[in-house]
Structure formats: structure tokens, C-alpha cells
Amino acid sequence: MNNNGAILVIEDNEDDRFIMEEVLIDLNYPNNRVYFSGGKEAMDYLQNSESNPFIVFSDISLIKLSDLEVKRELRADRVFLSRRIPFILLSDTSNTNIAYDRSPQGSFIKTCSISEFTKTINTVIEYWQRCSPQN
């Protein structure tokens, strides 16, 4: 794992991307952020760039679109996991269909409260930074 690597965010909703960026700015981690509107774009980035990302946050709704999309997104999961990059799902409510919660690293709720959401993102980043190996 690369603690200094980029934080990848897979999110098609512009407002949610904006909130995520505000939260990450607020938390002040030095990691670069790279945003994608779908899993396919994130996978392309991983395959075509030299960078070794630290973590991926992905909106859960992006793996619910269609069978085709599901297959594609699940492949994205596997690609990231095989590179030992934590793949974290974010959802709007706790009522998400558990069958879609494909990440072993868990899914987390985008709460209405920015301060709670900030705490969640901070906890997730702290957790994986404490995991071994350190780079």
C-alpha cells in the first residue's frame, strides 16, 4: 500500500464530488485527489498511469446501473483489490442492497451532516494509513 499515493474518487454526481473535495481539503492530507465519473475511467487511469494510488472511494450507485455496468464495476473492484488498493463504497442511505456491497473493506454512509461525513472519511484514511506495509 502506498500511503502517499493519490486518493481516487469514483462519483458521477457533481454535488457529491464537490462535497468530497471540500471534505478532503478540510482534512488536509497531502495526497493528490483524482476524480472519475465511472469505474471504467478509474480502471483506465490505473492501467495507463505510473501512479500507485493509496485508496479508492466509489459511489455505490455506480455498481447498480445495469448487468453490464455491474460486471464492469465488479471488474474494477477486482482490479483495485488485486493491486492491494483498498476499495471503499459510499452510499446515500443505509438501506442499500447488501448484494451490491461488494467491497471487503466495507461501505460507508454519506450522511447529511458534513461534520459526520468528514469524521467518516478521516477514520477511513487513518485506518488504511495504519495498515501495513507502510509503502
Binding site: 452510499s91 443505509s94 442499500t96 456491497d101 473493506q105 461501505s107 477514520t123 485506518y127 495504519r130 501495513s132
Partner: peptide, 29 residues
């Protein structure tokens, strides 16, 4: 996958983050 830290304060922070993470987690699978 965590390093077992021998220093109380280090281990305490690690365990604290672990508990917070999984309490906040909605549904691991």
C-alpha cells in the same frame, strides 16, 4: 493487516481507529 505495536499509546491509537472504522461501516461483505 496491522503491525503489533509494543508501545501502549501506539497500540491504543490503532485499536481506537479500528473500532471507529467498523462501527461506522454500514455493511462489509
Amino acid at each position: 493487516f496491522f503491525v503489533k505495536q509494543g508501545v501502549f499509546e501506539d497500540l491504543r491509537t490503532t485499536i481506537q481507529v479500528i473500532l471507529e472504522y467498523w462501527k461506522r461501516c454500514a455493511a462489509p461483505n
